[in-house]
Design a protein around this nucleic acid. Structure first.
Length: 192
DNA sequence: CACAGGATATACT
DNA sequence: GTATATCCTGTGA
């Protein structure tokens, strides 16, 4: 089983994001296949790193292949993978997993039993995998994380990102075609 | 469908 | 200092 190390993340965030669909993410053995991500680059006004470094987003400016975890809306945690260590902030937001390992632990942490809702959304995913600020800055190729390369080429669809008001026209949301574990259905980007 | 919940950041006075 | 917005989710109308 091939693990994705730092080299994988030393590239453009726009190359990396679609390639993450279909890879397997585990934290302490709990996790599953990544089915939904969004790309945020350093020129993106919707990205945290756009306006420069702060206490919250400092990890985004660090080495690639690490986890950037931030508090969202004061309540939830969101997990990102840091890309391209070139002195600016680039990251991929992990939005949804297809649960495959440690479902009992997920149900206990989430307080729901419906499998579809365990990891369908960035906040839910972090709760299910027990990801918090403790994991901010940790390398993705070392425990408790494990990131396994996909074995087959999945069918990927892209579309507009969710929950932002700036640069909404960028089709930088990527998802596994037909997956029932998405945070929201992806309406394929309309092409004129 | 509307909206509360509340950390973090920015934009004002 | 206060006000407003945010990479969201659960709950109740």
């Amino acid at each position: 089983m091939t693990s994705l190390g730092r080299d994988f993340f030393e590239r453009s965030v726009h190359d990396i994001a679609p390639e993450l669909i279909g890879t397997t993410l585990l934290c302490d053995g709990v996790g599953g296949t990544i089915v939904e991500v969004e790309a945020y680059d350093h020129e993106d006004p919707a990205a945290h790193g756009f306006r420069g470094r702060t206490a919250r987003n400092a990890t985004m400016f660090g080495p690639a292949g690490h986890a950037y975890v931030y508090r969202s809306y004061g309540i939830h945690w969101c997990l990102n993978f840091v890309c391209e260590d070139v002195g600016v902030a680039n990251a991929v937001l992990i939005r949804a997993l297809e649960p495959q390992h440690g479902l009992d632990a997920m149900r206990q942490r989430r307080g729901v039993t419906e499998e579809r809702l365990l990891c369908a959304g960035p906040g839910r995913l972090c709760q299910a995998l027990a990801i918090t600020r403790e994991h901010d800055g940790l390398p993705l190729d070392e425990p408790p994380f494990e990131l396994r390369a996909r074995e087959d080429e999945p069918e990927i669809v892209s579309g507009p990102r969710i929950g932002i008001t700036k640069a909404t026209e960028k089709p930088w949301r990527y998802a596994l075609a037909g997956s029932r574990y998405l945070s929201r259905p992806l309406r394929p980007h309309a092409r004129e």
